[in-house]
Computed example of a mutant assay.
Amino acid sequence: MNKIDIHALRQIGWDRWDPIGIRQLGNSAWRSGAADEYDSYLLHAANMILHGAALDTVAAYLDGIISSDLALGPVEDAVHRASLHTAEAISAYVQANRASS
């Protein structure tokens, strides 16, 4: 597998997950100030997938980040769906990256 491209993971995170809503600021200035906000979480999720974790497990990890680490309270259905879509997108990225190596 090629090295994980953090920029690809960031795009997935910002497009599908963004639990604290930084993207909603309405301009691109957030990209320079907060681009790395979710890096450690997304890298961990990618590594979970690389090591065979199920998508539900990865989504539960992301939900845990939201409720515990970010202290945003209980995860609602729409938020869980965003976590699951994020896990699916990361999995697709990992699989595509494996195929190209």
Rank of each mutant, 00 (worst) to 15 (best):
R23L: 10
D5G: 06
I90C: 02
G26A: 07
R23C: 05
D5E: 12
S91R: 12
R10H: 09
A29F: 15
A8G: 00
L43K: 08
H80N: 08
Q95I: 10
A54H: 12
A8H: 06
S28M: 09
A59P: 02
D77L: 11
A92G: 09
L25Y: 03
T57M: 10
D5A: 09
E37R: 05
W30Y: 15
H80L: 07
A53G: 01
L25H: 05
H44G: 00
R10P: 01
G52N: 06
S32D: 15
A46H: 00
K3F: 09
G21R: 07
A87H: 03
A8T: 08
S67G: 09
Q24K: 13
N47P: 01
S40H: 11
L9D: 01
S91D: 14
N97T: 14
Q24N: 15
R81L: 15
V79A: 12
Y93C: 07
H44M: 11
S100E: 15
I22F: 08
H80E: 08
H85M: 12
Y61H: 05
A46R: 04
D18W: 02
I49D: 02
A45V: 03
N27W: 06
Q11S: 15
A99L: 11
Q11F: 05
H7I: 08
I12H: 04
S67P: 01
